[in-house]
Simulated scan of single mutants.
Amino acid sequence: MTKIAIFDYGAGNIFSLKNALEKQNATVEVQTKVDMLKGYDGIFLPGVGNFDPAIQSINRDSVDFLDIVGDTPVFGICLGMEMFFDKSQEGKEEGLGIINGDVIVLPDTLKVPHMGWNALEIKKENKILEGVENGSWVYFVHSYRANPTTQDVIVAESDYDVKVPAIVQKDNYFGTQFHPEKSGDVGALMLKNFLRECKK
């Protein structure tokens, strides 16, 4: 059994993610302290909450998140992915700085938040996309988008009048702007692929 931790910022319901992972036969535990994230096969930063309180919860215990995580695979969803970057227009706190760039608000010419299904434009092969077809539909709920310094971290985009980085990856950090746990069979396949990486 793959042992997975979901880091809970205390901001919302993470039941749907826990449920989706358990359907893939993962053992899932919810943790609220960074120093409790050691010893897992994989870690999820879920997509619920606001940037500053989430970052503050990661930094609260004066323990370095990156040191604790080491080379453990990490999957960031929506806000969880946005925290990989240097900063966000949603808050004033510094991000984790795993990926260079910032997170910017969607243009006010669009309906914000963006809620609904959009197609993936796959830019390059990736371990979590094995078996996922280009043009597959996934479910978004967001008001911000990643703006990386270099394009090489972008695995897939989605078109919402602006190009939105939908999947990013750097080293052992995988992130999706959409919610795989709410994206039907396509999202379930990505979670399954990630869990396979956690077993290696």
Rank of each mutant, 00 (worst) to 15 (best):
D71V: 13
G76D: 08
F65C: 06
D35P: 14
L45K: 01
L37A: 08
Q31H: 15
G49I: 01
P46S: 14
F65A: 09
G47S: 05
V48T: 00
D64M: 13
Q31M: 12
M36K: 11
F51W: 01
G47L: 09
D71R: 09
F44Q: 01
L45V: 02
T32S: 14
R60K: 11
V69A: 06
P73E: 03
V30C: 03
V48H: 00
D35N: 14
D61F: 11
L45S: 02
D41Y: 12
M36N: 14
K33F: 05
F51D: 01
I68C: 04
N59A: 11
L37F: 03
I68G: 06
Q56P: 02
G49K: 01
M36V: 14
D67V: 11
D41K: 04
K38V: 09
Q31D: 11
S62D: 15
T32A: 07
D41I: 14
Y40R: 02
D67I: 10
T72L: 11
T32I: 13
V63G: 04
E29R: 14
G49R: 00
K38N: 08
L37D: 08
V69R: 10
P46E: 12
A54D: 04
G42A: 15
G47H: 05
Q56R: 00
D67W: 06
P73A: 05
V48K: 00
T32P: 12
F75R: 02
S57I: 07
E29Q: 13
L37P: 06
F75P: 07
D64R: 14
I58C: 07
T72N: 05
V34S: 13
D41W: 10
R60A: 13
I43Y: 01
G49C: 03
V48L: 00
N59H: 12
P46D: 10
Q56V: 00
V30M: 03
N59E: 12
V30Y: 02
D41H: 12
D35H: 10
D67F: 15
R60D: 11
D35W: 12
V48S: 00
V30A: 02
G76Y: 10
S62K: 13
V74E: 03
D35R: 10
D35I: 13
T72E: 09
I43V: 14
T72V: 07
G70K: 03
K33C: 13
D71S: 14
L45P: 02
V28A: 02
D52W: 00
S57L: 15
G70A: 06
G39V: 05
G42I: 12
G47Y: 07
L37E: 05
D35V: 13
S62R: 09
P53E: 02
L66D: 09
R60H: 12
M36I: 09
G76P: 12
Q56A: 01
M36T: 13
D64H: 09
A54E: 04
S57V: 06
I55S: 00
S62I: 15
T27W: 06
V69D: 06
F75E: 07
I58L: 12
D35A: 15
I55W: 00
V63D: 04
I43M: 06
L37M: 08
V34K: 03
N59Y: 13
V30E: 04
N50A: 08
V30T: 09
T27G: 09
D64F: 14
F65Q: 06
P53C: 02
T72F: 10
G39P: 05
F65S: 06
V34H: 06
S62E: 12
D52F: 00
